[in-house]
């Protein structure tokens, strides 16, 4: 092996077994205090059933609203039509 190739291989292998870094005691204490610092409320998981139920309820409410708007629009059109017919009738008289 040429000196250059040898140097490259040795440099790449210089990380082998380099495992001396450890978490400091201060960091370990910080990590151990996570259950204390985090509010218990955060850990409460919302069941998937409830999420689907809420989504279905919202979809139902939106659907009812759209239907109501559509019905109201139709009723308004019908009323306007009756009124127009009535005025036409009055004009004819």
């Amino acid at each position: 092996m040429e000196p250059k190739e040898q140097w490259i291989e040795e440099t790449i292998n210089s990380l082998d077994g380099f495992k001396q870094v450890t978490a400091s005691d201060a960091l370990k204490n910080r990590l151990k205090s996570i259950p204390i610092t985090i509010s218990p409320g955060i850990r409460v998981m919302v069941p998937k059933q409830s999420i689907w139920l809420a989504a279905a309820s919202i979809a139902l409410i939106i659907g009812i609203n759209i239907a109501a708007i559509y019905t109201t629009q139709q009723q308004t059109t019908a009323t306007e039509s009756v009124e127009a017919d009535y005025f036409t009738y009055l004009n004819q008289l």
């Binding site: 870094v21 450890t22 960091l27 370990k28």
Partner: peptide
Amino acid sequence: DQYSDKIYR
């Protein structure tokens, strides 16, 4: 205790 060193490293 078991994993802090490994994760940190």
